[in-house]
């Protein structure tokens, strides 16, 4: 069965076996990349499966909102990403932060900044000691891991922006937010990332 807009809308209208066939085919043909993408952000295959399958069910619960003749697979991919971002958001809100990481302006609190610096001193080599490219890479990876742990949703969207060249409209659709709220989110991405990459910027010296 071709994964076309026509077969999708027909399955949505008729339900039953046609949806089952669609589920089987999309999982077989596109499941691997959906699960891999979710696992990369969630750092866990099992959680990734849960998120992707939740998204697949959502697709058919809201299939009537798909407006052809666009590519239904691209639309499904967007629903998967929406669900993934929801999961990352939920994960952040459930994380047992004993102290708030940010102040009212969204900047790292003094205590959090000190903790990040302390962690950097303990785990990241200083610029004087890091000469090789592999060390720069290691520093960047560690910075990114810490950023992704503190702000998984922002880190994931930022990665997609760089890897896929997303523009504002695409980010709006992903986040399901207004243009204004999306601009604020983008601004927050930059602001939230900066302290986590301070030691790496220090090493490579751009800012």
């Amino acid at each position: 069965m071709p994964l076309s807009a026509q077969s999708f809308t027909q399955a949505c209208r008729e339900g039953g076996r046609q949806i089952e066939t669609w589920l089987r085919v999309i999982d077989r043909e596109h499941g691997a990349r959906f699960y891999r993408e979710a696992a990369t952000s969630l750092r866990c295959w099992q959680a990734a499966e849960d998120v992707v399958q939740e998204a697949m069910v959502k697709v058919w619960q809201r299939c009537a909102t798909f407006h052809g003749p666009g590519d239904p697979v691209a639309w499904i991919h967007q629903v998967v990403r929406n669900t993934l971002l929801d999961a990352l958001r939920q994960r952040t809100s459930q994380a047992p932060h004993e102290l708030p990481l940010h102040d009212e302006e969204g900047q790292l609190t003094a205590q959090a900044q000190e903790a990040v610096l302390e962690l950097s001193r303990a785990t990241v080599a200083t610029p004087e000691r890091t000469l090789g490219e592999h060390q720069v890479e290691a520093v960047f990876r560690r910075c990114f891991e810490q950023f992704a742990a503190a702000h998984p949703e922002h880190a994931t969207v930022l990665r997609w922006v760089v890897e896929e060249g997303l523009d504002n409209a695409a980010i709006e659709a992903l986040l399901e937010r207004s243009p204004g709220a999306t601009r604020e989110f983008i601004s927050q991405c930059r602001k939230k990332a900066r302290p986590f990459f301070a030691s790496w910027y220090e090493l490579v010296g751009p800012a």
Binding site: R141, F144, R159
Partner: peptide, 14 residues
């Protein structure tokens, strides 16, 4: 710099 690093050091699956 940030873009170059994110592209070079792409995060892989766990």
């Amino acid at each position: 710099w940030f873009r170059a690093a994110l592209l070079s050091y792409r995060l892989g699956a766990p």
